[in-house]
Design a binder for these strands. Structure first.
Lengths: 248, 248
DNA sequence: TAATTATTGATTATTTTTGAACAAATTAAT
DNA sequence: ATTAATTTGTTCAAAAATAATCAATAATTA
């Protein structure tokens, strides 16, 4: 077993457990502790992990070239529940669209092992699904460095070329009266383009977005096929009355 | 059994198992270990596999998960010199194409602070130029997880929509007689598409690629406008005779 | 057919990797 | 603050792998 092989396994262990001791590595790899220490030292200087006394930690946040993980920290647990529900809607072989919102991003962890194709304009999503079962189609166009996503006319035209089963989208605001709203034009038109390219439109909205209107309203509430949220039952009645499926 | 045959089988073994030891290869091919080592060495310099102490690994496995900057890069210093030369060819305001080769990738460090637009299919380039002065246009299409780049027909169509000043490209082999060659079809056709979309074509080739023909020859040497290399003067004469600008 | 070249295998020297022993440093506990 | 326990760094030796050199074989060319 060469150093390169061990490197792989060490990273995998860290990926699963977050942190581990030298003993654990030595046992898992059936090799002496001193060798593990040397491995960890080199990998630490290579920036692949964080060395602690007695072991190592994964540097998920530092390793990620994107700062997306921070954003998603807000209401992470609630969002994860929503995403788990969303992921359950996906069958093997599906082709799905995913937009560049922070909620939709958290779906990645639940779909990594599905054999599906994901079409997306979000670089964090691409990064997260890299080296997974999922086959990825990246939407081309101008990169918005702030959003870490692809936007613009070219991107919309790219989307329009596809017809997919399901689109998983996020919005900044949603209300029964004024429909869907967003903070920016770019976001709105990409969301719209994705919705138009998909047979079934799923919208992932945590409770904080329900009943709110934001800067730009861009689509009627009828665009929504399925609303996936963590709001309480009274608040979602109005949406069900409009003929929208709601998953809680 | 010829070297070509062994090469095929070695690659097949790696494809199946991901990694293997010299012993395994020697046994499978019924040939001495020293010969296997020689094969592996050549294939490693050709970029077909990753050599480890005691064996070899599939390239995709060796490229650490998402450490896009390949730190084990061979000839890093030589490549950097070539890239510095290439970067000097770029003026403020230029729109340039960059392909997904490891040499071209190293240009990023030298162009970070230029006010230019880069069109690329390489995810490492995108990540490297993120949060820089450079504005990025990402080519859309299917993602090749091994190459960490976008390939395919959609990508080529995307490229064809643009007309740019300069393209900075890499190839796996280049020779005065047979022109440009690559290991794979996808790579070749993307390179060709980029060349066609650009007024001036720069090719970045370290000395190890000069005078070599690889698996697939896909374009005549006349496609090259400028060759940037670290080879010695005698070796580049033949290219200059063909009317190609050469920078050393 | 003979001469030349390229490929392969064997041998030896060099390098790399690994593990053990012990001193130094760090952490935890009193 | 001091001591005990653990962890780490350093040095050295053994083992494994590689590189280098040279002879033998196979392939090619004249």
């Amino acid at each position: 077993m060469s150093f390169q092989n061990r490197k792989q396994i060490i990273l995998k262990i860290l990926e699963e457990r977050g942190e581990a001791e030298v003993k654990d590595f030595a046992q898992a790899l059936d090799i002496s502790e001193i060798t593990i220490r040397r491995d960890l030292q080199q990998m630490a200087t290579d920036g692949l992990l964080f060395r602690t006394h007695g072991g190592a930690m994964k540097l998920a946040l530092a390793q990620m070239p994107f700062t997306f993980a921070n954003k998603t920290a807000v209401n992470a647990k609630e969002k994860d529940k929503i995403c788990q529900l969303a992921a359950q809607q996906i069958q093997e072989g599906d082709i799905i669209l995913m937009d560049c919102g922070s909620t939709v991003f958290r779906m990645c962890q639940f779909i990594k092992n599905k054999r599906i194709k994901v079409i997306t304009n979000s670089l964090p999503v691409v990064y997260e699904l890299m080296n997974s079962q999922v086959s990825i189609n990246l939407i081309g166009g101008e990169i918005d460095q702030e959003r870490q996503a692809v936007h613009g006319r070219i991107a919309e035209e790219h989307i329009a070329r596809y017809k997919v089963d399901k689109a998983f989208l996020g919005v900044d605001g949603i209300s029964p009266e004024n429909g869907l709203s967003a903070f920016g034009e770019d976001e709105a038109s990409i969301t719209l383009a994705m919705a138009n390219a998909s047979a079934k439109k799923y919208f992932l909205c945590d409770a904080s977005k329900l009943g709110k209107d934001k800067y730009l309203t861009f689509a009627p509430i009828t665009l929504v096929d399925v609303l996936i949220t963590n709001a309480n039952i009274e608040d979602i009645k109005v949406y069900q009355d409009k003929g929208i499926d709601v998953l809680i």
